[in-house]
Amino acid sequence: MAATIIKAPAKRMWAYAPMTVLALFFLFPIVFMVAASLKTDHQIFADMNSVKAFLPVGELSLDNYAAVFDRVPFWRFLGNTLFVTFMVTALGLVVNSMCGYALARMRWKGRGLVFGLVIATLVLPFDTTIVPMVYLVANLPWIGFDGPTPVLEFGWLNTYRVQIVPFIVNAFSIFLFAQYFKSLPKGLEEAAAIDGAGWLRTLLAHHRSPLQARVRHRRDPDRGHLPGHLERLPVAAHDRPERRAAPRHGRRPVLLLARHRLGRGDGLHHHDHRADGGRLPRLPARVHPVHRRRRHEGLNSPH
């Protein structure tokens, strides 16, 4: 025992040696890039043969950065990038989550076929469809405006829409959303339905926070106690399979954990953003009484 304790610091030092060498390998081009961005071309090549290549030494200036704005319409480029990224992300979130929700949670004709198609496109590399994609977008119709009158145009090339619309749908994203919605307990949605939320409102509630949604719908001072199966709902949220993974740091005191988690205004999902969020042990049903009390104090009261 004593031997291992004495050995430990030396062992630690050795663990850092390969990591440091590798870190240098991963950093050198980036450090070089940063240092070179402050130098003139002449200075860069003069410093190449020594460690000065990585250091901000010699003739330094921010001229290269100023030149970025002179040589290219930088703000326009940045604006284009942000606009396209924002649109693809925002529209993708709407379209893919709706499709994933329909596949995971609703019964309709052709659901199996569509799910099969989504899976099939997962293995389709983007590179195999680029050739006909160009052919297609060059001929797609669009309603444009000639002054106030709408006109039917053909051809999407050199437009914003050609950079956005084809990339909204993402089979992988649909698949991930479907998996996530499948992992939520169905009882939660039944509660939402009973409280009068339509499909769209239920889905929106999922986006806000799966648990808060249900709690918000149930905040009705006239109603008093709810039927038993609704009372159990927040516990059921812990039946999500990703929370079922074996705890790494041994079992935590469950009741304590329940207080800790349920006593927060933002509900159970507080932990989703932590690095080890998925690994916390799930709450077994036996914490029910404690939890019931805490829920009324915690989730419904403003913090």
Binding site: R111, M133, W199
Partner: peptide, 28 residues
């Protein structure tokens, strides 16, 4: 109602998938 809602939810995704992924793959 669920049939209709389910189809309506999935339609935007299906249409885009058909036009921009599966369509080009078949054309290819």
């Amino acid at each position: 109602a669920e049939q209709r809602a389910g189809a309506a939810f999935a339609v935007p995704g299906i249409v885009l998938l058909l036009v921009f992924v599966i369509g080009p793959a078949v054309v290819s």
